[in-house]
Design a protein around this nucleic acid. Structure first.
Lengths: 203, 203
DNA sequence: ATGTTTGTACAGTTTCTACTTTACAAACTT
DNA sequence: AAGTTTGTAAAGTAGAAACTGTACAAACAT
């Protein structure tokens, strides 16, 4: 079962590893979009092709890095739900496997990182808006009121944008986005192109 | 016109700056999502409230940083189109102002960073897929073919996901996303809630 | 209990990133 | 022409991030 423990035709096997390396490298060099360092991207890629759950020791051996790094690395992948902890009876060590559903990983990234940022900015801007309104009442100087009103306009505009972002993120969380961008691309059988409303199987 | 060169009621003015500082700080502490360092986030926030275009020297004075930092900082903001270069007759210095449309900034981030990543990963995975298919033909060992087929399945799955991401990004670029998530949130006057198809003014 | 395995906290090292200072080229002025 | 001004390249520095080795606590085995 475990393709790492058996010895197949060595030539084919090394070719396979070469191919996998291409993909792993590509993943690793783009994973910074998830705020994850390159080397941990390699870890992710390695786990992606390793079909069974992995232990920290296996990761260490596979990547030639320290076990501590594997521990912290897998933890950061766990935080953004790119890997999951699994359990297997009779196995003492912690086991991890990659989250197979990449849509989930993508959505979770937004829900967490972007969602957090949006909420914070929204809160601060709301606070600023209130303070500006208060300040506006206390001010008589017309050139100053003009500036305050301009700032207020910016705050309104910003709040509108953050509200939009929140709705976008929600459409990810609820997977309603699939109503608009379906998982399987439209095969254009005959009719119109966009905004088809076919159902998508959520998992 | 320029609120920095005149002297208004000092008390009100400092209160205003205090309020702005709240917003600037909040923006700066979340701008890492755009791959921009904190201090350059402050630069962005400062420019955001400074209603006229700014020169590098003004930035240096406003932030107390080196002119070189301002130069590289504003360049990185320029790269992701969060600021624009502007021209003003009779002015020798380069002038910059923030991109007012935050939707644009957000969309451009995806179009550039994510789009680039998607294209690269897609290309590499397509290459890997071809190589795997080739390898599959040369292989007789049944346990080995099983593994190759499993990898091939992963590649298919990945390509499907990247296709989806590409369509999502395209919906940003074309602003068709606004058909699904309109700029102004539905005021729920009476009817249904989501997927309204009202038009949005593109700018 | 004593001994072993497993994961992580902590301290130290290296490597990288965000700056600053200096120096200079290009564009403008006189 | 020589002298300014303006933006950036290059080199150096300080601090942060990524990684390693050691030490240890918790869980399990005997």
């Amino acid at each position: 079962m475990n393709q790492n423990s058996k010895r197949y035709d060595g030539d084919t096997w090394s070719k396979l590893e070469e191919i996998r390396e291409i993909v792993i490298h590509s993943i690793a060099s783009n994973i910074d979009l998830y705020g994850v360092p390159h080397s941990i991207g390699r870890l992710y890629g390695t786990m992606y092709f390793h079909n069974e759950p992995m232990t920290l020791d296996e990761m260490r051996d596979a990547l030639g890095m320290s076990k501590t790094s594997m521990s912290t690395g897998v933890r950061s992948l766990l935080d953004i739900k790119m890997v999951n902890k699994t359990y297997q009876k009779g196995v003492r060590k912690d086991l991890y496997r990659v989250e197979e559903d990449w849509y989930n990983s993508f959505f979770y990234l937004f829900s967490s990182k972007w969602g957090r940022a949006v909420r914070q900015n929204e809160r601060q801007i709301r606070k600023a808006k209130e303070m500006l309104e208060e300040l506006l009442e206390e001010t008589s100087d017309p050139s100053l009121t003009e500036i305050i009103e301009r700032d207020l306009g910016k705050m309104e505009h910003a709040l509108e944008y953050y509200d939009w972002l929140k709705r976008l993120i929600k459409s990810f969380e609820t997977e309603e986005i699939f109503r608009f961008i379906p998982k399987q691309s439209p095969k254009q059988p005959s009719g119109h192109s966009h905004a088809s409303s076919q159902e998508s199987e959520a998992n």
